[in-house]
Structures are given as structure tokens and as C-alpha cells.
Amino acid sequence: MNDRIVFEDVSKFYGEILGVNRINLSIPAGITSLVGPNGSGKTTLMNLMTGLVRPTRGRIQVLDYKTDDPENLFKILGYSTQFDAFPKGLTGFQFVYSYLRLAGRTSESAEQMAWRAIERVNLVDAARRNVAGYSKGMRQRIRLAQALAHDPKVVVLDEPLNGLDPLARSEMIALFRSTAAQGCYVIISSHILHEVDVISDQVILLSNGYVVAEGPIHNVRSEIQEHPTQILIRCSQPRELAAKMFEYPQTIEVSIHKDEGGLLLKTRDADRFYLTLNEMAVNGIDIESIAPADDDVLSVYEYLIGNEEAVR
């Protein structure tokens, strides 16, 4: 009996292109947000979780099920994808209804469950109309209704707030909360952190296919703020600089380059470093270049939480 969604060293490559790499996760019940800029691998992670794509490496388990067992997996899982195409010619009701028929429900129970789900997403009035005529927000909701229709324990929603107006957003957020309150696993993705941070029990930050931070939202926030900065320095006396930096507890790691012409420094206090560096420069150390070694991660954080909170 497994009560988590587990990724063990999972990688997915689309041919040469990296989707996600070396993902290790263990997701408990509650609302979990996957946050990252476009192309960071959110959809890939969700498709892996639901078996729509297979991992190139690694192992995935959703509660007690393998992802290559759709017959059982989707009994407990509902997925509202980011794919915006629908089977042709269906009304909103028929879309949800036929999904339930595919699940093997009788016509009466499918009809009843479909209407209940459509009510939950507040789309009763439009349900008899063809999906082809829906607005983006309506399509978003009918997909949500389909994902929730069979009362799944795990609900995976890819950018569910995208395309919704503020009122609809707060309705949907209330829906996520009530679903999570029933003990469900609600996984939502977003490329805007502040859109989901207040409702999330945990956040997973993705960048370029890697998980860069994970955990309860306040932990992630402080992790971002305390995130060690890596700095590459080319200078004439790297050993002296290293010795000086080791006097400060915020310094985590220093490694001198083989050619004795530079060093890599990992510190939680970049300001202190720059100050020290300035002092030493005055005292005759010859500095060739300074460059942050992990610019990518920094820029992601800036993008996600806004400049005022970013490191540096």
C-alpha cells in the first residue's frame, strides 16, 4: 500500500530534446503545484504521471498503480490536459458522458455523473452546446468536469487557471480546495508562482527539465532566498581568496582550479563575498573575471517570484 505519487530518477527525452531529467519526487495528498516557465517540463511530468508518455529512464508509481496500466490507473486518476482539441462534433455534456461510457458506466449512471460534474464546474447552461463553439475558459472547465467526473482520488490539472477570468479563477480554486479537503491528491501546474502559492500545500519548482526546489511553500521561499550562489572567479591568488572566504560561515564550498588561476565559490552570502573581494583587490590581487556560475537558476527565481525577492 503506497500513499504517494513517486518518481524515481525519472528522465524523459523526446529524441534529442530533454523533457525532464533525473526527477525524484514523492508527492503526498493535498494540493501540489508544479511551477516553472514555459518549456520547463510541467506538461511532460504530468504526461509521465498519467502514462501518456513513457519515461526514457526511471520508475513512476501513482499510489498502487503503474503508469502503463491505464485500465486501473484511470479508475483513481483524472487528468485535464493542456491539449485543446476535442473529439469532433460533441457537446460539452456528450464529452463528459462519453468519457464515462468509455469507463464502462451504464448510460443512466454516466448521465447522472456527467451532470453532477458539469454542475461542479458551473457549466450547466452551455452543456448542450457543441464544444467547438466554447470560449477558452469554457473549454478549460469542461475538461475539468471530465477529469473530476468519476470522482478520482488523484486529480492532475495542467494549467487549469489559464484562460479563466478572476471570478472563475476563485471558483476553481475553491473547487481545488474542497477536492483536496476530501483527502485527494490535486496536482496543478502554473507558470506563475503567486497564482498558486497561497493554495498549495507543496510546490515543485521546475526549470529546464530539472526540479530546482521542492517542498512546502514557505520552505521553498526561504530556500530560494538562502539559495547558495555559485561564483566563478579568475584571479592571480586564488588560495589567499579561498582562505579569506573560509573565515565566513556562509561559505559552503570553495574549489581551486587546477591551473591555480581561479576558483569556484559557493556561498549563501554573496554580498559578503563581493565586499571581501573588493578589499583584496585594493590590496593588490589581480582579478581577471567574475561570473555567476548558475545564472539560469537565478533567472528562473527572478521570473517566478519577482525581482524584489530575488537573490543578489
Binding site: 501518456l52 491505464p70 487528468y79 490536459t81 491539449f83 469532433k88
Partner: peptide, 20 residues
């Protein structure tokens, strides 16, 4: 046809064996 109009995932999301 469903790969071309990008709607095949609808079937793949149902609790149904692919062989079925």
C-alpha cells in the same frame, strides 16, 4: 486521424486497456 487532429489523448485518459 486522431493524432493529426490531436484528440487521441481523450481515449488514452479513460480507464480502459489500450487493446480494448
Amino acid at each position: 486521424g486522431e493524432i493529426l487532429d490531436r484528440s487521441l489523448h481523450f481515449y488514452f485518459l479513460a480507464p480502459m486497456r489500450r487493446e480494448v
